[in-house]
Lab assay of single mutants.
Amino acid sequence: NQASVVANQLIPINVALTLVMMRSEVVTPVGIPAEDIPRLVSMQVNRAVPLGTTLMPDMVKGYA
């Protein structure tokens, strides 16, 4: 099963993503693939993302 990107903490809106904010985990439904974590660094989410939430492509500005 493919690992997805999961919030490692509350990720506020309009804050640049850092490695420490994200972890990889096998979850259902599948979200952004874990291998895209380096690409996500410095991008921003378009809504607050609670701890443990799977990041979906539509949550990250400029990802999709």
Rank of each mutant, 00 (worst) to 15 (best):
N1F: 12
N1V: 15
N1C: 11
N1P: 15
Q2T: 14
Q2N: 12
Q2D: 15
Q2F: 13
Q2K: 06
Q2P: 14
Q2C: 15
Q2I: 13
A3R: 06
A3T: 09
A3C: 13
S4L: 01
S4Y: 03
V5T: 09
V5P: 01
V5A: 11
V5D: 01
V6S: 02
V6F: 02
V6E: 01
A7Q: 01
A7C: 04
A7L: 03
A7G: 02
N8W: 03
N8Y: 03
N8S: 12
Q9A: 12
Q9H: 09
L10W: 13
L10C: 13
L10S: 13
I11G: 01
I11Y: 02
I11H: 00
I11F: 02
I11W: 02
I11L: 15
P12G: 09
I13A: 10
N14V: 03
N14S: 09
N14F: 07
V15Y: 14
V15H: 11
A16I: 11
A16D: 12
A16V: 11
L17E: 01
L17S: 00
L17W: 00
L17Y: 00
L17K: 00
L17M: 12
T18Q: 13
T18N: 06
T18V: 05
L19I: 12
L19T: 09
L19N: 08
V20H: 15
V20P: 15
V20N: 15
M21H: 10
M21I: 03
M21G: 02
M21S: 05
M21C: 04
M21N: 07
M22Q: 00
M22W: 03
M22E: 02
R23L: 05
S24V: 10
S24L: 05
S24F: 06
S24D: 08
E25C: 06
E25I: 05
E25Q: 08
E25K: 06
E25T: 06
E25Y: 04
V26H: 10
V26W: 10
V26P: 09
V26F: 07
V26Q: 12
V27Q: 04
V27I: 09
T28G: 08
T28S: 13
T28Q: 08
P29Y: 03
P29E: 07
P29L: 05
P29G: 04
P29A: 04
V30D: 12
V30Y: 11
V30H: 11
V30P: 13
G31K: 00
G31N: 01
I32F: 02
I32M: 03
I32S: 00
I32K: 00
I32E: 00
P33R: 07
P33S: 11
P33L: 06
P33D: 07
A34W: 05
A34M: 07
A34P: 06
A34I: 06
A34H: 14
A34S: 12
A34N: 05
E35Q: 12
E35D: 14
E35W: 07
E35L: 09
E35T: 14
D36I: 08
D36C: 07
D36R: 05
I37Y: 03
P38Y: 09
P38F: 09
P38R: 08
R39L: 12
R39W: 07
R39V: 12
R39F: 13
R39K: 15
L40Y: 02
L40H: 00
L40P: 00
L40D: 02
V41C: 07
V41K: 05
V41E: 06
V41L: 14
V41T: 09
V41H: 04
V41W: 03
V41D: 02
S42M: 10
S42T: 09
S42A: 11
S42E: 08
S42H: 12
S42Y: 06
M43S: 07
Q44I: 09
Q44F: 11
Q44G: 05
Q44C: 11
V45L: 14
V45W: 00
V45K: 00
V45I: 11
V45D: 01
V45H: 00
N46R: 12
N46A: 15
N46T: 12
N46D: 10
N46C: 15
N46W: 08
N46G: 10
R47K: 14
R47M: 15
R47P: 02
R47L: 07
R47T: 15
R47A: 09
A48E: 13
A48D: 15
A48R: 12
A48Q: 12
V49W: 03
V49Y: 02
V49R: 02
P50S: 07
P50I: 04
L51T: 12
L51N: 14
L51S: 13
G52I: 03
G52P: 01
T53R: 08
T53S: 09
T54E: 01
T54C: 05
L55P: 01
L55C: 03
M56A: 08
M56Q: 12
P57V: 05
P57Q: 08
P57D: 06
D58I: 09
D58T: 08
D58W: 10
D58L: 10
D58C: 13
M59H: 11
M59W: 12
M59F: 10
M59N: 05
M59E: 02
M59L: 06
M59G: 03
M59Y: 09
V60M: 06
V60Q: 01
V60A: 01
K61I: 14
K61V: 10
K61P: 15
G62D: 15
G62W: 07
G62A: 11
G62V: 04
G62S: 09
G62N: 13
G62F: 09
Y63V: 04
Y63Q: 04
Y63M: 06
Y63P: 04
Y63W: 15
A64P: 11
A64K: 15
